[in-house]
Design a protein around this nucleic acid. Sequence first.
DNA 1: TTATTTAGGTCAGCCATATTGACTTAATTA
DNA 2: TAATTAAGTCAATATGGCTGACCTAAATAA
Lengths: 161, 161
Amino acid sequence: MADLNNLISPFFLNDKEIRKVIELLFFSYRDFTSGPDKILEKLNFGRAHHRVIYFVGKKKNITIKELLGVLKITKQSLSRVLNQLVNERFIIVSTGIDKRTKKLSLTQKGEDLENQLSTIQIDKIKKVINKFSEENINGFKEILYDMIETDNKKIFQQIND
Amino acid sequence: MADLNNLISPFFLNDKEIRKVIELLFFSYRDFTSGPDKILEKLNFGRAHHRVIYFVGKKKNITIKELLGVLKITKQSLSRVLNQLVNERFIIVSTGIDKRTKKLSLTQKGEDLENQLSTIQIDKIKKVINKFSEENINGFKEILYDMIETDNKKIFQQIND
DNA sequence: TTATTTAGGTCAGCCATATTGACTTAATTA
DNA sequence: TAATTAAGTCAATATGGCTGACCTAAATAA
């Protein structure tokens, strides 16, 4: 049955080729995050700090709850990371109209770091993108989007208004 | 200057669009690993165990050194994970022709688990792939490959002979 | 043949990132 | 007024990494 499945599958989606996709995702994702990791290390930050900085930069005045919804971690986990970023003046907190909520924004220092980190990844993507057609790039994005679970697709849409 | 850059850049690679790619990679990769994670949890294993099982399954008789080269972790880190997998009979160790080396392989139990984990990811990719053209899929793979650093491209080639 | 290198292992301690559970405060809403 | 919500905190635990130091056995080079 599995063999039959392989026979009727076009080459580009037989199991052997699909396993390559698994590996490509693993290696490419690892290399994609390694650049920022090096910069963060000097500041004694980790990838968790990067994610917070990224999404606070993306959505100004994001609340704790919204941020937790994007990151899908517990507030206890966020707490340590966020407190460090606030204490070291990368992020500034203000109170929302609903006084229970807090709004997070990057300071200038935070924006500078965000820029430094994102530039590495943006440049990496630009370099790659220049070698491919618009069709390829759009296909790439659509495939990635398709791989996201429904709930997270909504979150992706939300942070992109 | 940045504005000019945006103006002369085609829409599909301006910074705003590229940031979406960053997010797509983040969300899709997270969802891609979440399925196996749930199964591993029941066995008190983590993603590190998955990676070991995956690459031992991929390359039968892989040595410790080769495995470390793929995973890019220290032997101390591998040690704990690998010992658990050996103790619980998912992986079997034998001595190489060079008697300093050890060769790792999956047991039947290990293969069963490997299959269970990989099937989730393979099915996920199959589902996605069926919605796209062969050109899109090949483009997707080529872009991912292009995002990998030179050294790791070599490793990718090695494990795929 | 001796010296060096290589493959692998181990002990100890440390750090980052995550978890669960219990509990608190303050503000909003029903 | 009661219930819910947003946020915070304390404590304990797990996982997955790291560095450094040190060891054994086997292969290779001088």
